[in-house]
Amino acid sequence: MLRSFHVEAGRLRIDEGDSLSLLQQAAWIDLLAPTPEEDHAVEHAMALSVPTREEMSEVESSSNLYRESGASYITVRLVSRPRDQQPKLAAVTMIVTARQFVTLRYADPTAFKLFCARVDKSPKVIEHPRDAVLTFLETVVDRVADILEEIGNGLDVLAGELFAQDATSTKVAVEKDLAAMLRQIGRSGDLAGRARESLLSLTRAAGFLSGEENGDTPHQDRNEVLRLKTLQRDIKSLLEHDAYLLSQIQFLLDSNLGMISIQQNAIIKILSVAAVIFLPPTLVGSLYGMNFEHMPELKWHLGYPMAIVMMVLSAVLPYWYFRRRGWL
């Protein structure tokens, strides 16, 4: 899909079409899973090349951050969470020229939707291409911060359930659904890892914009320099927070595995105690089940009640002893 955004008298106008005049006059061109014809139309209108999907997926910085034909190419990775699917990273390439801002993507992450809403509310942010890039990166950083906050809140709930003060009895430990907790911890770890990858790509993009990675410093006004520095500080703080969350996830993972071991041991203990309790009655029953001729109790009229009493006592006494020692 190809959309062009125009700012006229402070108002935003969106057109869908690949006519040469529309593309050349647009302040922002958005390509979402474009067809080869749409790619060609943008290349013809702007006199530059549009990266392929394979080129966008490359991980080396030289393929993600470079200047060509007077345009800057910046590829970042955003966390995308399609409904009922695992989170994944979606590459978004920004092409910045002196007059226009172009975005190329093959997914529709939430951060991009938030940026579109921001543009719709304040169209002037795309009047200057570098302002548009900075606004987009700031929106992505805000979205990653929301994701990390969501992860942190979820981990707090998991920790509360895992280390509940009343979860000291064997019954509670056995009944707790630790497998479901393990899956939740795994999902949190996966999401935190992808958020970290996104933040690292943003770090490289911010450094590229400030001219730190290619050794030159492009002309920037004071406001842009301040925004870049603030952006870099925010990214650094989020990386530190993400590292803390990953360490907390590892701690909860180890604790959960320890609880699973305790749970299994509790089950084995119950089975072992049950075996010990029923072993003496089984022994008594086996003794009097033998078919020897000379057994005095066989012809005694109180022999059967005596055997029943012996089996009950041999089961009750171990149970009472285990309860007294606190093993049950």
Rank of each mutant, 00 (worst) to 15 (best):
H6W: 00
V7W: 06
A9C: 08
G10I: 11
R13T: 14
D15G: 10
E16N: 06
S19I: 00
Q25A: 15
M46W: 07
A47Y: 13
T52R: 00
E58T: 14
V59Y: 09
E60C: 03
A71F: 13
Y73F: 03
I74P: 00
V76I: 07
R77H: 10
D84Y: 12
Q86A: 15
L89N: 04
V92R: 01
Q100E: 13
F101W: 04
V102T: 11
T103N: 10
L104G: 06
A111W: 04
F115P: 04
D120H: 14
K121T: 15
R130K: 10
D131Y: 05
D131M: 07
L137H: 02
E138C: 10
D146N: 11
I147W: 00
L148P: 01
E149L: 01
L155R: 02
L158Q: 01
G160W: 04
Q165I: 13
Q165T: 11
A167K: 00
S169F: 00
S169A: 02
V172Y: 09
D177Q: 02
G189S: 04
D190R: 08
G193M: 09
R194N: 15
R194V: 08
L200P: 06
T203H: 12
A206Y: 00
F208S: 10
F208D: 05
L209Q: 01
R222N: 01
N223A: 13
L226C: 03
Q232L: 08
Q232V: 06
L239R: 05
S247K: 04
Q250I: 07
F251L: 09
D254V: 03
S261V: 04
N265Q: 12
K269T: 08
I270T: 09
L283H: 09
G285P: 00
L287W: 01
Y288C: 02
E293R: 11
M295G: 03
K299V: 14
H301C: 02
H301T: 12
G303V: 03
P305L: 13
I308L: 14
M310F: 13
A315T: 08
Y321G: 12
R323M: 14
L328C: 02
